[in-house]
Each structure stands twice: as structure tokens, then as C-alpha cells.
Design a protein around this nucleic acid. Sequence first.
DNA 1: TCATTAAATTGTT
DNA 2: AACAATTTAATGA
Length: 234
Amino acid sequence: MKAGNPLYQRRRAPTPGELQAIPWLQALTADERERAAADIRIALAEVGETVCRSGRPVTYWFGVVDGLLKMSIDNAQGQTTTLIGIPPGGWFGEGTALKREAYRYNIHALRKTMVAGLHVDTFHWLLDHSIGFNRFIMNQLNERLGQFIAARESDRLNNPEVRVARSLAALCNPVLYPGVGEILRITQQELAYIVGLSRQRANIALQLLQARGLIHVEYGGLRVLNMAGLQSQI
DNA sequence: TCATTAAATTGTT
DNA sequence: AACAATTTAATGA
């Protein structure tokens, strides 16, 4: 959200309900929370809109209040690889914010998404002053490490059903994405974008996973019935 | 609140 | 990629 970014122009203060949807605020003391909340800004990203771009200096630490984002990287050959989808409750970019480096990925909105941003200076103030915040960040980094290890594992297998299963398990991770409730709100088209499949193939994979009793497919979303089963798909 | 209509999503070829 | 069927959201009485 820099000056040139349209999101920056549309940013505003958060409502109480939106603050409620920011998980790490709960880990702070009242004083810390007051200071952090005063610095949070909210903006609505339209479909396809860029939230942050690789190479730009980190000015905000971002999170999803509601909606769905995708994180992707462009390689030297100009191809784009989608790494993860980010559902409600997800905050990302601690690594680069910590080191005050440039973003190493692109973030785009897969649908209309309410994005929250904390200025990187306040992020560092919290790191320097709040034990609860440090615990949250450490927990988050650890959880994400587990996800990337699982993702690498399934990349080698390259089986569509497995990749869909692992992606769904990742998207429903309650530690990283506490805003995702009983049902994960995601269309089959959005899931296809994240996994890198056609919608038809994503549809087939979902039906198969449902037939195995691991998920229940619904209109505009799905319900995970067996998380461990999803993660152990081969 | 209910019926009608438009838009979004899904199932299938 | 295209089409039909289904589901939800929006509209207005």
C-alpha cells in the first residue's frame, strides 16, 4: 500500500468488527492492542487487484479480514507460479517485514477482499515490546514451515488429487487462517487457480475427495470432514 | 415477506 | 471452451 497503489488511496480505519477478525490482536496486552489497532488500515481489493508486488519495499504487514488472496512468484522465464491461497484470518510477509527487505512475491485478490495492513514500523515496535506478539509470530512461522515442507512433498508426486487435498488442508489450517470457519468459502475456479489446474480437473479432484469422505462439496465452498485424511493423501 | 430476475457457480461434454 | 442446470443474491411490490 504505497502512494502509487490504488489500495493506499482507499484505505480507512478499521471497524470494531474488523478488529475482531484480526487474530494477533488477541495476543496483545490492552496497551499494546490500543497502539496497534490505531495503526491498522483497511482497504477493499477488487478482483485481480494487486495488494503488493515483488521487489517493492515492505511498508505494510498484511492480513485478510474477508475474501481470498493468492501469493505468486514470477521466475526468470516469465512464468508465474502460485504458491498459496490466503483465506480470512491469514497474515503474511513476516519474514520480509522482519528484515525490512522488499516483498519477494506478488499478492493478488482472487475475489473482492477486505485487506488489513499494519505499518512495518509498528510491526517492529510490537516485536520489541510484546511477548504475546512474538509468540504469535513464532507460532506462525513454525506452522508455515510445516506447510511448505508438505507442499514440496506433494509437488514431487504431482498428482492432481493430492495437490488439491494438500491445498485444502493448508487453506483450512486453523493456526494460520483462524478466520476460516466450518466451511471454507472458495469456488472451484478459485481453487483451480491456486492449485494450477483447470476448473474441470479441480472439479473431478473435489468429487473424488468427497467420495473418499474427506470433504463435503457445497455451492461456493466446502467442508473438511477429515483433515488428517486430506494431509495423508498419496 | 414473497415472487421475479439477474448473476454466480457448478456439472458436463 | 462452451453450454445447460442449479444456487444464491438483488430487486421491488
